[in-house]
């Protein structure tokens, strides 16, 4: 493992160079989600509460809702930045050929690129976190809760990466995977509480969702950071279970998919 560390490190370095190669693209990547938050979510929820005479909705006050939405942004930056568009394109156009030849696997390459992106996202999310505090979006911050939430975000990011990796690998069978990826993104955002907190969902649906990985992607870590609610050990256990499922699935799809690979364009 030690001898592979320099390979990972150098790939992370190259991934950073790639990320920074196009400056405008990079700045949009960094500030885009924050802009969406302030122009869309902040204004939208402020208007909704205003229309309702600033009454509580699903037990959440205006301040609690805005704090929750800001935390959703931070969780998504920390854990859900990676997507599989590049991987799917590379498979479709036969660009993964090089990684079948090099003594460094495609999985290792994508995992290194994921680490590179996440390290940038840590800086971005820290800036957003400080901005949210300065704007008074978090009424009370408990350092222990934040640390617990960060631990959860680490596991969520692993799960998110593996889910995205599996979705990307489907390009071995499907010429176009973007519709499926967009659908997954929308479903995941809705069921994870990224759009509406799960308090808005009927209790039965909420209980059923807790058997799926979705609430653990956003709602659980955001709530943990804000209120410290729920057992972190239980949540980590559930996430580890889904990480294991996703990694087995990724392995299976890779082994099967590689047999379909034709190295197009060579």
């Amino acid at each position: 493992m030690n001898s592979r560390f320099p390979m990972w490190l150098q790939t992370v370095y190259v991934a950073w160079s790639n990320l920074l190669a196009y400056r405008v693209n990079f700045f949009l990547l960094v500030i885009g989600p924050a802009l969406v938050f302030f122009f869309v979510k902040f204004s939208l929820w402020s208007s909704i509460y205003e229309q309702q005479g600033n009454r509580e909705l699903a037990g959440l006050s205006r301040e609690a809702m805005l704090g929750y939405q800001a935390m959703v942004l931070i969780v998504s930056l920390l854990a859900q930045g990676h997507n599989s568009t590049r991987l799917a394109e590379d498979i479709r156009l036969g660009r993964i050929t090089a990684y079948l030849i090099y003594p460094f696997s495609l999985f290792e390459f994508h995992a290194s690129s994921f680490i590179a992106l996440q390290s940038v996202q840590i800086i971005t999310s820290s800036v957003v976190f400080l901005m949210a505090i300065s704007l008074g979006l978090f009424t009370a911050i408990n350092l222990v809760f934040v640390v617990k939430g960060l631990v959860l975000c680490f596991f969520v990011s692993l799960l998110w990466f593996l889910i995205q990796y599996c979705l990307g690998l489907l390009a071995f069978w499907l010429e176009q995977t973007w519709v499926m990826r967009v659908l997954f993104q929308i479903i995941a955002q809705f069921l994870s509480g990224s759009i509406l907190p799960l308090e808005f969902f009927p209790q039965g649906l909420r209980d059923a969702l807790m058997f799926s990985p979705f609430p653990y992607l956003t709602w659980v870590p955001a709530k943990t950071m804000l209120t410290g609610e729920g057992s972190i050990i239980y949540a980590v256990g559930i996430l580890c279970f889904w990480i294991m499922v996703a990694s087995l699935l990724a392995r299976l799809i890779w082994n099967r998919g590689l047999r379909m690979y034709t190295g197009a364009g060579m």
């Binding site: 320099p6 390979m7 150098q10 790939t11 190259v14 660009r95 030849i101 364009g265």
Partner: peptide
Amino acid sequence: QKSQLWWDIPAMDSLQLLMRY
């Protein structure tokens, strides 16, 4: 017909990556 070098970085960076691999 297919480049194996990384498009957006200097050639030397690509070679250094291969040095590690």
